[in-house]
Amino acid sequence: MSYDPPRPIGRLLLTPEDKDAPERVRRLRRLGLGERPEPAFDAFADRLAEVAAVPYAMVNFIDENRQFFAGLHAPDGTGSGGRPATAAAADGAEPPDVGRYMARDYGFCPHVVVRRKALVLEDVCDYPRFAGNPVVDEIGIRSYLGAPLIDRTGIALGTICVVDVEPRPWGRAGLETIKALAAELVEQIERRESGGI
């Protein structure tokens, strides 16, 4: 009996087409979002990380080409990027820097924006569609929980997410929590737009 190793699944590993990107970019510009870090979003990311007990959390706005972490919590506490605890780091090698910008084909948030639904990946390696994403091998991400930020116009502006370098059993409670926090942040953005904050 012979064994055929699995072949790459091709399109399953690609970032989905984002037909709403031009409209999203116009909306983000009107709101003044997605071009600079903001202390309020960093504080929100800190809160996300604390609630989920994870090393990384983000408030992420996405355009046609990249993701921008307007809010970022990382283990180094700077909010300007961090160094995940990958196997390379354990061997003394320097892991890659994670900063405020990431290409659209890295990570899982672009999938959340296109799907317009929360995404729970307790162990990304269990999902062929996501296991081949560059953040798995290059950054060491093993677990993801994210929800879209859908504003009053119906546009998915971006996401909030938490990630870990170990598999995590998020469960129903994690899903409900991330969705509730996304709704809370959308309310803050809308109050800001109306001059409330």
Score class of each variant (00 low, 15 high):
Asp4Cys: 09
Asp4Ala: 14
Arg7Met: 06
Pro8Ser: 14
Ile9Thr: 11
Arg11Met: 02
Leu12Val: 05
Leu13Asn: 11
Pro16Trp: 05
Pro16Asp: 04
Glu17His: 00
Asp18Arg: 02
Ala21Ser: 07
Pro22Val: 08
Glu23Phe: 06
Arg24Phe: 03
Arg26Met: 13
Arg27Ser: 08
Arg30Ile: 14
Leu33Trp: 11
Gly34Phe: 13
Gly34Gln: 10
Glu35Gln: 04
Arg36Ile: 04
Arg36Met: 07
Pro37Met: 04
Pro39Gln: 15
Ala40Leu: 11
Ala40Lys: 09
Phe41Asp: 15
Phe41Met: 14
Ala43Tyr: 12
Ala43Met: 13
Ala43Leu: 15
Leu48Pro: 06
Glu50Met: 00
Glu50Cys: 00
Val51Ala: 03
Val51Met: 01
Val51Leu: 02
Ala52His: 02
Ala52Thr: 03
Ala53Asp: 14
Ala53Thr: 08
Val54Ala: 13
Pro55Val: 14
Tyr56Trp: 15
Met58Cys: 14
Met58Lys: 05
Asn60Thr: 15
Ile62Asn: 01
Arg66Gln: 10
Arg66Ala: 07
Gln67Asp: 03
Ala70Gly: 10
Gly71Thr: 14
Gly71Cys: 12
Leu72Ile: 15
Ala74Thr: 15
Thr78Asp: 12
Thr78Ile: 11
Ser80Arg: 06
Ser80Gly: 13
Gly81Met: 11
Arg83Phe: 15
Thr86Met: 02
Ala87His: 09
Ala88Trp: 07
Ala88Arg: 12
Ala90Glu: 05
Gly92Cys: 11
Gly92Gln: 12
Ala93Ile: 00
Glu94Ile: 11
Pro95Tyr: 06
Asp97Glu: 10
Asp97Thr: 09
Val98Leu: 13
Val98Trp: 08
Gly99Phe: 05
Arg100Gln: 11
Arg100Val: 15
Tyr101Asn: 04
Met102Ser: 12
Arg104Trp: 01
Asp105Pro: 00
Asp105Ile: 02
Tyr106His: 13
Tyr106Gln: 10
Gly107Phe: 11
Cys109Glu: 01
Cys109Ile: 05
Val112Ala: 00
Val113Tyr: 00
Val113Cys: 00
Arg115Ser: 12
Lys117Arg: 11
Leu119His: 05
Leu119Lys: 03
Leu119Asp: 03
Val124Gly: 01
Val124Gln: 01
Val124Leu: 05
Cys125Val: 00
Cys125Gly: 06
Tyr127Lys: 09
Phe130Asn: 03
Asn133Tyr: 13
Val135His: 12
Val135Ala: 11
Val136Cys: 05
Glu138Tyr: 09
Arg142Cys: 03
Ser143Cys: 05
Tyr144Ile: 10
Leu145His: 02
Gly146Phe: 09
Ala147Arg: 01
Pro148Gly: 00
